[in-house]
Amino acid sequence: MKDKLIKIESEFDSAYKEAKDLNLLEEIRLKFLGKKGSLNYVMADFKQVPNEMKKEIGQLVNKLKNKIEEKIAEKKQELEDKQNEAEINNAKKIDLTLPAKTNVGSLHPRTLILKEVEDVFVSMGFVVEDGFEIETEYNNFDAVNVPANHPARDMQDTFWLDNGQVLKTHTSAAQNRILKKYGPHCKAIFPGRCFRNESLDAGHENTFFQMEGIVVDENVSVSNLLYFMKEMLKGVFKKDINVRLRPGFFPFTEPSFELDASCAFCGGKGCSSCGGSGWIELCPCGMIHPNVLRNAGIDPDKYSGFAFGLGADRLVMLKTGLNDIRHLNSGNVSLLKQFGIKL
């Protein structure tokens, strides 16, 4: 029996060397370790082994079995490694330069920019309010102190409707409602679509977006307005902006200002974008007219506040590089889809 085991071992040693692939190895495993394999075959004779030798033979058999199992496992690992390596080396080279198919739509550039600006205001504790597009004459004009005979009320400038209402000419039309809603402690912005009866060209639309904000509280002053506008513009443009106030005139504010920002293109030195002045007229603003506060039930002796406008469409054009405002309402998908979805 001992001899047989020695023979099996030498047979295994030579067969093992010939195992070139995993299939052959499996055959070898079955040949030696399988149910009908040589080891089992030899073990059939174990009963006949004299008792005193059984221990020795048993140990020999186990040793041989362990050796074969180890060798096969070793070989298997070696062959698998080789196979993996071959598979890797022969792999198809994937062309990742092929165009990606992301299948994504797009948001309107106004949506993208307004959201970005709104977020700045929200971070400063503002509520974002909404208004109507079809307004009463009262809300659009009277409530914000536009005199009865003001030219803005003419049909040449305002879209009047056959029920006596108007397409709102400015976001200020929402002021009265918002001031009534929040009372004398109010920080709100309200973007919205506005309408003016004018001819279209690259810089003029009859349907455009404005964004307006108001801040009302006790003892709000011109100096506060100046501070606020600087901070706000820092948020909107993500950098420090130099500003200056100039006298302006709007019916809904007193005093009224034009706020200029130092020209972003030349840094204030003067260039063609700013007409050489170094300043760009950016937002109309002012201290809310006492009549506007009074019309909303707020005591203008006790409370004061300021309002400011941001030409939303101008901001969109400034930030996106669009040079013709008419694109915004064109519904031209091949243009609009380029703006993507980043909010």
Binding site: G125, V128, R244
Partner: peptide, 22 residues
């Protein structure tokens, strides 16, 4: 106006509830 200094606003700190529809 060019000689004005900017003065910070003083406000109470209150949570702001945004409009759900918006």
């Amino acid at each position: 106006y060019g000689a004005f200094t900017a003065k910070p606003l003083a406000f109470n700190v209150e949570p702001v509830v945004q409009d759900k529809e918006h």
